[in-house]
Amino acid sequence: MNKFYSTILLLFITNIAFSQVSNNTHKMEITNLVQESFDELWAKFNAEKIEQFYTKDFLLLENGEIWNNDSIVNYIEKAKLKTPKPNRINKIEVIDIKIKDKTAWIAYQNYATISVDNKIIRKAHWLESATAILTENGWKLDMLHSTRVKNE
Rank of each mutant, 00 (worst) to 15 (best):
V94P: 12
F45V: 04
L33E: 00
D101C: 05
K102T: 14
E65F: 15
N23A: 05
S6G: 06
S129L: 03
N90S: 12
Q52G: 07
K80E: 02
K98C: 01
S129I: 01
T113F: 01
F53P: 08
N15M: 11
Q20T: 01
L127N: 15
F45A: 14
N2H: 08
L11G: 13
F38C: 09
A132N: 02
E48G: 14
G64Q: 00
G138R: 09
K80C: 05
E65G: 07
N32E: 15
I99F: 00
S37F: 09
S37P: 11
I120Q: 07
K27F: 00
D39A: 06
E128D: 15
I99T: 04
N46W: 11
S37R: 05
K27P: 03
T7M: 10
T31R: 02
R148Y: 10
K98D: 03
A130W: 06
N15E: 08
S115K: 06
I92D: 14
V116Y: 01
T83Y: 03
T31S: 14
A79K: 10
N68Y: 04
M143H: 10
V94Q: 07
W67A: 03
A107I: 03
Y75D: 14
T7G: 06
E36T: 12
E136M: 12
W42L: 12
W139D: 07
F18T: 02
A107S: 14
D117M: 06
Y54N: 11
A112T: 09
D142L: 01
K56R: 04
W126A: 05
F12R: 01
N69C: 14
K49S: 13
M1G: 15
Q52H: 15
I30Y: 09
Q20A: 04
H125I: 01
V73L: 04
W139R: 06
H145Y: 10
V34F: 00
S146V: 04
F38T: 06
T55R: 09
T131P: 06
I66D: 08
A130G: 14
I89Q: 08
T25I: 04
F53A: 08
V94K: 12
V21L: 02
D96C: 04
E40H: 14
I8W: 08
T131H: 13
